[in-house]
Design a protein around this nucleic acid. Structure first.
Lengths: 242, 242
DNA sequence: AAGGCTAATTGAATAGCACTCGATATTATC
DNA sequence: GATAATATCGAGTGCTATTCAATTAGCCTT
């Protein structure tokens, strides 16, 4: 992609500065015009370089956008980790609330980037790269959840990836719903019910309820789960018989 | 778009046949190559017509794909309604299970179409149309949920759109996870835990727990009985299979 | 500091594509 | 069967990402 030889420090610094300029310009143009609407010429002009020069830094328009997205997601990951580090609550549900709040707000505010990320889901070869960055991002949730299980706050038999999908899937859809209902007003107010609901959901469905003492609902939930599984088994067997 | 005058029946039939041929060809090409990868020339060739003719049926490539997607989503909506109509269970959770099962399987099998739908989320003007079709599709869930509330099976204070986002958001993310883990094997087996989890989640989080009448022990006893019966059924069926 | 070598930069030329449009064929109407 | 209306066609148009031969800038040696 870049140079092979090792230029002097000043030269390297210059290249890096130029690369940052390209990335910065590309980000602006992509966000404003979308992938197809963005013109390489305009990106070049904004970065103060020739059109062809971009191609000695990035092989294609798609790869350039991928770099923009990577930078974006890496930033989000750091932010999310900061949020978790700064959170005073030590129990799972308090921390989950903080993460949900941060994530929902982020998804709403950076809707452009999120859309761009999914817009790139066409060229199969490149999808995988951005998938890595998503994985890296959601690892924040994974750590939190596993820690909750270790400390006995969550059911030990809960499946991590299912919980993760519920968390991020629900929040993304909710974000879209919120965006739709209020296009202009970006206050934090309306996000609160969604966050509350998410925490309550995790408490009700994944919260560990010590068996001996337990409230009523808990045991009921456990039994309900058992019923679900059995019902399913019956269906499967019945269909196999017919 | 199409003709303004009213041609004879045979002529109209001919046009409609041709339109279907275009749609059919477009669907194949779009699914195989994605939106950008699809060539109008190839679609025309496959439909057995000239390239320019497409444009007397559809104004642009995007609109052609939109037509394909509309047809797809309309079909899904009908199927989902059929699934609900055919479902024997009358209680909310049984029906929810059927819908979850259908939706998850559909999303996995038709992943191409789902991706295409989101790929089109760039041209704002056209998004709205595909949004209408999504709305129409998810109405199946809405009706089910509201009925559940009416019958007192679900908490009355639950918010419909939040529940909807949780349902479809989680299932979409789960579908992606499932796709990733097993690229070749498309058995129904692995979807079961996700469906079970979803139903259990709704039961735990949205299920109404009759506070007044039933004492703790009663409810537990009822569930326990249900489990016993189901276990018996499983045994019977299993033995009949071997 | 001059010359030579390598790497970086450039923008005009290339190529690929959606879409247009005048010409042609087909159908409808009298 | 003549004529008008409509449908079809595919070679051309215009717009862009991408390439590449020529040019420039940076660095090292003597």
């Amino acid at each position: 992609m870049a140079s092979k030889a090792i230029p002097s420090e000043t030269q390297r610094a210059k290249l890096e500065r130029k690369e940052r300029a390209i990335l910065e310009a590309a980000r602006t143009i992509f966000v404003n015009h979308g992938f197809d609407g963005a013109r390489m010429q305009e990106i070049a002009r904004r970065a103060g370089i020739g059109e062809g020069t971009i191609y000695s830094y990035y092989d294609s328009k798609a790869e350039l956008m991928l770099a923009v997205l990577q930078q974006f997601w890496d930033g989000l990951t750091l932010e999310a980790e900061d949020v978790m580090a700064a959170e005073q609550a030590t129990d799972f549900f308090g921390r989950l609330r903080a993460l949900a709040h941060y994530h929902l707000n982020t998804v709403i505010v950076n809707a452009d980037f999120i859309n761009l990320t999914f817009a790139l889901r066409r060229n199969n070869s490149e999808v995988s790269v951005s998938r890595d960055h998503l994985r890296h991002y959601v690892a924040v949730f994974d750590r939190l959840f596993l820690r909750g299980q270790d400390r006995g706050e969550l059911r030990a038999d809960a499946v991590l990836w299912q919980a993760r999908d519920i968390f991020y899937g629900s929040l993304e859809y909710s974000a879209r719903s919120i965006e739709m209902t209020m296009e202009a007003d970006r206050s934090t107010r309306d996000q609160q019910p969604v966050v509350d609901d998410m925490v309550a959901l995790f408490r009700a469905h994944y919260g560990a309820h010590p068996e001996g003492e337990a409230a009523d609902g808990t045991t009921l939930a456990a039994l309900s789960r058992q019923i679900e599984q059995l019902t399913e088994k019956v269906d499967t067997l019945a269909s196999r018989l017919s």
